[in-house]
Amino acid sequence: MQRIEYTPRVAELLGRVRRRPAASWPWRPGEPVPEWLPIKQSWGWLFAPDGRVLTLVNPKDGIVSLPGGSLEAEDQGDPAAALAREAAEEAQAVIGPAHYLGYLYDRIGSANGGHECARVRMAAPLRAVGPSRPDPASGRHYRRLLVAPGLAVELLGWGAAGLRQARAAVQFATRALGVPELANEVIEELPEEGGPVFPS
Rank of each mutant, 00 (worst) to 15 (best):
Q41W: 04
P67F: 03
R28A: 09
V57L: 15
F47A: 00
S70Y: 03
G68V: 04
V64R: 07
P29K: 08
T55P: 01
I39Q: 15
L54S: 07
K40T: 11
W43D: 10
V33M: 06
A48N: 02
W45H: 10
L54R: 09
D61A: 11
E35Y: 04
L46T: 04
N58R: 11
K60F: 10
F47M: 01
P67S: 12
S42P: 07
G68K: 04
L46F: 03
L46G: 00
W27A: 05
P38V: 06
E31S: 13
P59V: 10
W27G: 04
P29A: 12
L46C: 07
V33S: 03
S70D: 08
L46D: 00
S65W: 08
G30D: 10
L37V: 06
G30E: 12
L66Y: 02
Q41S: 13
G68Q: 05
F47K: 00
S42G: 11
D50P: 04
L56C: 13
W36C: 02
G62A: 14
P67E: 06
P29S: 08
I63G: 05
W27Y: 14
S65Q: 14
T55I: 15
G68T: 04
P38L: 07
R52F: 04
R28M: 14
Q41F: 03
L46W: 00
L54I: 14
P26E: 08
K40I: 05
V53G: 01
K60W: 12
V33K: 05
P38R: 07
V53K: 00
W45G: 00
P32D: 15
L46Y: 02
W36P: 03
W45Y: 15
E35S: 12
R28Y: 13
G62K: 14
S70H: 05
P38N: 10
S70R: 10
P29V: 06
V57M: 13
G69T: 02
V64G: 08
W43F: 09
W36F: 09
L56D: 08
I39E: 15
L37R: 06
I63E: 15
A48Y: 00
V64T: 15
P59W: 12
G69I: 01
S70P: 02
G44L: 01
S70E: 10
P34R: 07
P32N: 14
T55G: 02
K40F: 01
D50R: 04
P29G: 05
L46K: 01
D61G: 14
I63V: 14
P32W: 12
T55A: 10
W27N: 02
E35M: 06
G51S: 05
L54W: 10
P32T: 13
S42L: 08
A48Q: 02
P26W: 03
P49V: 00
E31M: 11
G44K: 01
L46V: 01
K60S: 15
N58S: 12
I39V: 15
L56I: 10
W45E: 00
P26A: 06
K60C: 11
